[in-house]
Design a protein around this nucleic acid. Structure first.
Lengths: 211, 211
DNA sequence: TAAGAAAGTATTCGATTACTTACTAGTGCA
DNA sequence: TGCACTAGTAAGTAATCGAATACTTTCTTA
């Protein structure tokens, strides 16, 4: 933070690459504060003490900024999830570690679920839609794969519908996010997450019959 | 549909009450099509073959329209949930019936989750925020109450964290909605819901220890 | 049936938005 | 050191939005 602050105050002109990174950072920050679709290019410029027109030196359109933001999220999220899964002892442990890592990531950047589930980004821009769809489906496939691996190790019943279990997994994250979003930071997201996950875990472990 | 269509084409002028109802109906419809925050008063007016200014004969501000929409949803949803729970044989059966009724309701009106979870409505208008918060927390309380009743009847272990279980319940609905939203109507929402619910059910039933 | 109430229209306004353009000045490299 | 390149500025544009205004048409009712 110190380093960046010094850079900002001393160095008035940044390279386009540096500036693009800062625009992304500011966009994420503002999206967390006031919602994705109410962030204007003027807001971004003001947040980094720049004129609004300067934004368009580095991005052709505003949509391009959101594309870059989503790509930034994808890279960071995937790296964090892979890192969390790498330390796991078994598939179910991997799922739990990924879950907690994801929750921690969201706690740091509250705008992320807002961005991924924003209707604005889904409806208007098809590239954004495809990008987000890719992230979600890739995530889902990762969970499904771990659950199938769990089946192979007899940690999870063979008749578990892994696809549905993955949907429930992602829904659990969404539910927790909405919970903390609506009711403020009263109850910490992480605390609630740790209490909710065991219920999910028992759901996928103790199933004994197909419906 | 026939009756309404006839009314629309034959009767050009409606009472303010009737018109308010139609504005709400059109707003919900348009929100499902193009997203809550991109619905303009011009869109609404065009959808009901009226001029834009006419909207403001019946609502003072646009926000007031969304307030009315949320209140409409609350009434309808609560009625449907109560009706579903009334036929239940036990608390867990009530939860399942409410879940399926909710999913059916959403299938008919895809805009509803978009509205309840819209960031636009959360950030800008505090009255809307309170309204939505009331719906969600009331819903959550209803589920929690049923789970506590399940405890009393020994259908659910006494050490279940009912609050967390309720969060997971709502998250399950959100997850299913997002699933069908992102990946289109390929797999029907109801079909997927029926496969996902058993996993949740086992999660809350088979828990045997606290973490 | 006359008159007032109320629904709808046509038009306009001010604010906001993403984006453009002509110009200025800081930076890095030869 | 000087100069070309380019980040940044300042001003402006076209489009869009919610909302207000003055006026017209329809409905109700006394």
């Amino acid at each position: 933070m110190n380093k960046e602050a010094v850079q900002i105050t001393t160095k008035s002109r940044l390279s386009s690459e540096e500036r693009q990174g800062e625009i992304i950072r500011v966009a994420v920050e503002l999206a967390a504060e006031k919602g994705v679709d109410s962030v204007t290019t003027q807001d971004m410029a003001a947040a980094m003490h720049l004129t609004q027109g300067a934004i368009f030196r580095h991005f052709a359109t505003k949509d391009d900024i959101w594309v870059a933001v989503i790509e930034w999220i994808r890279e960071r999220l995937m790296k964090i999830l892979d890192k969390a899964a790498a330390n796991a002892t078994d598939p179910l442990d991997a799922i739990e570690r990924m879950f907690l890592a994801h929750i921690a990531f969201i706690s740091k950047h509250p705008a992320i679920p807002r961005l991924l589930f924003s209707e604005l980004l889904h409806k208007k821009n098809s590239k954004l839609h495809q990008l987000i769809q890719g992230i979600i489906s890739g995530y889902e496939a990762k969970i499904t794969g771990l659950l199938e691996a769990g089946k192979a190790q007899f940690m999870v019943p063979a008749d578990l519908d892994t696809k549905s279990a993955a949907v429930l997994y992602i829904g659990m994250i969404q539910g927790l996010v909405m919970q903390s979003s609506i009711f403020g930071g009263k109850r910490s997201l992480q605390q609630q997450a740790e209490k909710t996950f065991p219920i999910y875990l028992y759901g996928i472990k103790e199933i004994t019959s197909v419906v």
